[in-house]
Simulated assay, not measured.
Amino acid sequence: ADGKMKEKYTYTYNRITSYGTWGDKVVTVSTGDSKITDEDQNVAQALLFNYLDATDGSQEEGTLLAENYLGNGEKVSWAGLVEANNKIYTSVIPMGMSKYGIKKWPEAVTDQELVTKTDGGSGSSAYTAGVIPSTQYPDNAYVAIYSGTNFNETPVIAKTDKIGYACGRMRSQYYQTIWAADNGDVYVFSPGYGRTAVSSSDLKKVTGQKPSGAMRIKAGATDFDPDYYVNFEEIGTKHPIFRCWHISEDYFLLQLYKKGAEDMISGGTSADVSELAVFKAEDQTIMPVTGLPADGKFGGEPYGEKGYAYMAVTVTTGENPAFYKIDAKTGKAVKGLTVEADAITTVGKMKYLSK
């Protein structure tokens, strides 16, 4: 009531590669070692969950085998959780084969030349000898659909080969690119990152061909709508997406690669992702966002409701950062509250719960 925040719960969890909400629970997800090993002591990879109950602060953990999750021998990660139609939807990202997977499902190796001969890579792209470090299926998108109250059940897997896997990427962070419209239709957006898997003299990869696009799973359905497909590289500025968020109704805010697909493929983490646009999903149209400062930098999560997206913007001219209000129907951004701080990155809305 006095506008001041007080600490209520303290909790710990594993590193996060994805997160979301499920009812009153906050769910964090990461991929890591399980307690399962084979006779050669190869460790199976697992999806590691942490559930925090926002009503009483209780916490529980969960583990799910990430190996062969899709039945193709590959380990997986998840990108985003969408709660809609009394179900949970998550984008499943295939990530190649571990030593454990290759030994247990050798028939799943499509080409022995994909198996690494030596250690290599760096940072989040580091790999060891004897693995397949990137997916053999870059031009497929998978969505797991859960109907229960946790991830112990066997999900329904929706699959399409019209777009590549659905997530934004920044090093080891997997950004959510699946969202539900107000009518329950779930839209699945792909940047087309399969094209960035390029073979080198010492490492062969399967290079994807699919452009950045979107498909949908209609409310109540458990498979992709065969009549819906959008190629973002043929509409608007013809640029691939980096991230996206739901605003309201069937409007979505897109963050795009400003210099196009070639910059996405070759630019890596230094690629220019400063372009914003509004996508109306039913009409399959894109409108550029106007009115933002030319030197503005944005990042983190915007917040959308009632036809508007609110985004935190920091400028480099010495002025205080501010929130901007973007009209989904016109694409016009208007400056709102200014914040006395060096920078702001995220905007959200808190709900007051009476005692």
Rank of each mutant, 00 (worst) to 15 (best):
T128K: 05
A129T: 05
G130C: 05
V131T: 14
I132L: 08
I132C: 05
P133R: 03
S134K: 08
T135N: 11
Q136Y: 11
Q136H: 10
Y137D: 12
Y137A: 08
Y137T: 14
P138D: 10
N140R: 12
A141S: 15
A141E: 06
A144P: 07
Y146C: 08
G148N: 11
G148C: 02
N150G: 04
E153M: 06
P155L: 07
V156I: 09
V156T: 13
I157S: 01
A158G: 08
K159L: 06
T160E: 12
T160W: 05
K162I: 02
K162G: 13
I163R: 01
A166N: 11
A166H: 08
R169A: 13
R169H: 13
M170G: 07
M170R: 11
R171W: 11
Y174D: 14
Y175R: 00
Q176M: 05
T177P: 06
I178R: 04
I178L: 13
I178N: 02
W179V: 01
D182N: 06
N183G: 06
G184S: 07
D185L: 08
V188D: 11
S190N: 09
P191N: 14
P191V: 14
P191K: 14
Y193M: 14
Y193A: 11
Y193S: 14
G194H: 10
A197N: 15
A197W: 11
S200N: 04
D202M: 01
L203I: 11
V206H: 01
V206Q: 03
V206M: 03
T207M: 05
T207N: 08
G208H: 09
Q209L: 10
Q209C: 00
Q209K: 14
Q209I: 12
